[in-house]
Measured scan of single mutants.
Amino acid sequence: FSITQFVRNLGLEHLMDIFEREQITLRVLVEMGHKELKEIGINAYGHREKLIKGVERLI
């Protein structure tokens, strides 16, 4: 299971460039909250919320 699959499953594949540029893996994403996601350029609250909720389902 990769970050690419995870992001695609959430319908947020347009954010993949950010994850690749910042070298974010699923392991790193698990540790990130709204503040960190915003810092790397994910400005939409809804997108950040989707990512965080998606990660919570993985754990």
Rank of each mutant, 00 (worst) to 15 (best):
F1I: 13
S2N: 13
S2F: 09
S2M: 08
S2W: 08
S2V: 08
S2C: 14
I3C: 04
T4L: 15
T4Q: 14
Q5P: 04
Q5Y: 09
Q5T: 12
Q5I: 10
F6Y: 05
F6L: 09
F6S: 00
V7K: 00
V7W: 03
V7G: 00
V7E: 00
V7A: 06
V7Q: 00
R8D: 04
R8Y: 14
R8I: 11
N9K: 12
N9A: 15
N9W: 13
L10A: 04
L10W: 03
L10H: 02
L10Q: 04
L10R: 01
G11T: 03
G11I: 02
G11W: 01
G11R: 07
L12V: 03
L12P: 01
L12W: 01
L12Q: 01
L12D: 00
E13D: 11
E13P: 09
H14K: 09
H14D: 11
L15H: 03
L15P: 00
L15G: 00
M16P: 01
M16N: 08
M16T: 10
M16E: 08
D17T: 12
I18C: 04
I18D: 02
I18K: 05
I18N: 04
F19I: 06
F19G: 00
F19E: 00
F19P: 01
E20I: 14
E20W: 09
E20H: 11
R21M: 06
R21P: 04
R21D: 05
E22T: 07
E22D: 06
E22G: 07
Q23V: 07
Q23R: 15
Q23T: 07
I24A: 02
I24V: 10
T25E: 06
T25A: 05
T25C: 05
T25P: 05
L26S: 03
R27E: 11
R27F: 09
R27W: 10
R27A: 12
V28W: 07
V28P: 01
V28N: 13
L29R: 02
L29C: 03
V30N: 06
V30L: 12
V30D: 02
V30F: 13
E31H: 15
E31D: 14
E31C: 14
M32L: 08
M32S: 04
M32N: 02
G33C: 05
G33A: 04
G33Q: 05
G33N: 07
G33H: 06
G33D: 06
H34Q: 03
H34Y: 04
H34G: 03
H34E: 04
H34I: 03
H34L: 05
K35R: 10
K35D: 11
E36Q: 08
E36Y: 04
E36W: 06
E36A: 06
E36G: 06
L37C: 02
L37K: 00
L37H: 02
L37P: 00
L37S: 00
L37Q: 02
K38T: 10
K38M: 13
K38A: 10
E39A: 14
E39K: 11
E39N: 11
E39R: 11
I40K: 05
I40Q: 02
I40H: 04
I40R: 04
I40P: 00
I40C: 04
I42V: 11
I42L: 05
N43Y: 13
N43P: 07
N43I: 15
N43S: 13
A44H: 15
A44V: 12
Y45Q: 09
Y45S: 07
G46L: 13
G46N: 14
H47E: 15
R48L: 09
R48W: 06
R48G: 02
E49C: 12
E49P: 02
K50E: 08
K50G: 05
K50A: 14
K50R: 12
K50Q: 10
K50T: 12
I52K: 04
I52R: 06
K53T: 08
K53I: 09
K53N: 09
K53E: 08
K53L: 10
G54A: 14
V55Q: 02
V55N: 01
V55P: 01
V55S: 08
E56M: 13
E56W: 08
E56D: 07
R57W: 12
R57G: 08
R57K: 13
L58S: 04
L58M: 12
L58W: 13
L58G: 02
L58D: 02
I59V: 11
